[in-house]
Simulated assay, not measured.
Amino acid sequence: MAELLRLDNVWAGYGEAVVLEGISFTLEEGDSLSLLGRNGMGKTTLLSTLMGATHYKSGSMRFAGQDLSKVPAHARAHLGLGWVPQERDIFPSLSVEENLTVVATQGAWNLEKIYAMFPRLNERRKNMGNQLSGGEQQMLAIGRALMLNPKLLLLDEPLEGLAPLIVQELLSIIKRLTEESGMAVILVEQHARQILPLTRQALVLERGKGVFQGSSDTLLNDRALLDSWLGVTAH
């Protein structure tokens, strides 16, 4: 597989505050990465930096052969970056179908394919965004990002605050995306044991620095590492 994303010694933050310190990693086309760490360690900041929403200080970011730092934030979606933020940011006064089509681009992901993956959205295609449950809004946010036909999908804590049955449904969908779609995925989530089986690589952040980079299986099977950086071995 060809290289899709490369970060070398990236420093970024907000204003004068530095959050990310010397982050380096690569992601190939169709690859998948679990981005892990306790709260406040820089995970969301890393995704925001890829989308151009932070103060980029130094280092190198290349995406699909281009210098990402020189691409305006508003143009990064058209370059091939799809982002599902924690806040979901759906349009509450638009219908499900309008939410999906307002940002759509030509490609494999179209309404038919979205509705096949998310039958709930098909059932509620005429409902307004503010008439959906939290789980349905999350499905809509993911579906809308897919309608951009991205090369890389960024998912920021997609399971947060959802009922267990919805979590299992979304985990199944994310598994299909990482294994069958041919699209690269970076997945941020607090529940490491739920998402590590879905990705090939893992990157753990500690106070804005990368403290582990390797295979997801290696991290999943190392109780000492999980306990040291994530405190999850008891779960």
Rank of each mutant, 00 (worst) to 15 (best):
K151N: 11
L196F: 05
A145N: 01
V185Q: 08
L187I: 02
L177C: 11
L196I: 02
S181A: 10
K151A: 13
H191T: 07
I174M: 10
E180G: 01
N149T: 06
I173K: 08
E189I: 01
N149V: 02
Q190A: 00
E169R: 11
V167K: 09
I174Q: 08
H191D: 11
T199L: 12
T199N: 11
L155I: 07
L177Y: 12
P164G: 12
M147L: 01
A163M: 12
I173S: 09
G161D: 04
V185T: 10
A145I: 00
P150R: 02
E157N: 06
L165V: 15
I166H: 09
D156Y: 02
L159A: 03
V188W: 08
L165Y: 15
I173L: 10
S181R: 05
L159F: 05
R193Q: 11
L198R: 05
E179V: 10
N149H: 07
V188F: 08
K175H: 15
S172I: 15
T199E: 12
K151H: 12
I166N: 08
Q190Y: 00
E180V: 02
I166D: 11
V185H: 09
E157H: 07
L165W: 15
I186L: 08
P150M: 05
I195G: 10
L148V: 05
M147P: 00
S181E: 07
K151G: 09
A163Q: 11
P150C: 03
P150A: 06
L170R: 00
K175E: 15
E169W: 13
A145D: 00
L198K: 04
E157M: 05
T178I: 05
